[in-house]
Amino acid sequence: MKIVVCVKHVPDTAARVSILGAAECDAGTRYVMNPHDEYALEQAVSIKREDGASEVTAVSLGNADAEKTLRAALALGADRAILIETDVAFPGPGLTAAGLAAVMRLGSSPDLVFTGSRSVDTEAMQTPYRLAAILGLPVVTEITSFEMAGKTLTVERDRGSGAMEEIELFLPCVVGAARGLNIPRSPTLPSLMHARKKPVEKIPLDAIVEHRSEGFRMVRIEAAVDERRAQMISGTTQEAAEMLARIIKTASAEGIGD
């Protein structure tokens, strides 16, 4: 089985993010593999563990630094790694999907494409859908359970309001992983050393895709301002509870008029 996993190189979620200029947003600190993509990679690699004949290719669209995330993918069990190199600061879902699809079309078509359901930086949440549309494949995202029997996939996703959907679709397809799908493992030191010797293929984005507008422009970026000054509630348990009850009643009355 040919499996492709799309991984993104993103700022660590604990990083401070600073804004440079009107249209740039740069976090000068640590970059990691997008957390949701770890679940995607783990699922792909676990399929390979069951079926040794499968091949897992990790693909990432990003700048030269993204090679680090691809090395991590190799250390975690990917057989091949491809970097679609671009200096575009925060590529949108349209451009990303176009690049990923172009690379997938260079080789034989994948049977299964895994992605994370969302990235923790731009949070567009659309790349799997746009990718699937270009490839002409069905797509399901935010899945928290995955079962494969031949070409039949049975997956589950949270539908909201405490309801879980059980969904059936068939290979070939695109699947977006969500937290809870599995437990991603960490790369071991030996696997990281071994991964260093593996090649990461590099393809310039401009060589395979013509740039096109995402359909919107960035007007400005605003930093979030978190200004809350804690009023500490003191007194006995009973007094504190009474104060809380009052606050809850007032605050929720000021709230929604549903």
Binding site: P11, T13, R16, V17, I19, C25, A27, V120, D121, T122, E123, S213, G215, F216, R217, M218, V219, R220, I221, E222, A223, A224, G255, I256, G257, D258
Partner: peptide, 28 residues
């Protein structure tokens, strides 16, 4: 974006556009 650390103000190009609105950010 960035898990709420920044807010991007975006303007759509002319033509049909689509958006979803986070629940509870607008009072009906």
């Amino acid at each position: 974006r960035f898990s709420g650390k920044t807010t991007a103000v975006l303007e759509f190009d002319p033509g049909l556009f689509a958006c979803s609105i986070r629940p509870k950010t607008v009072q009906a």
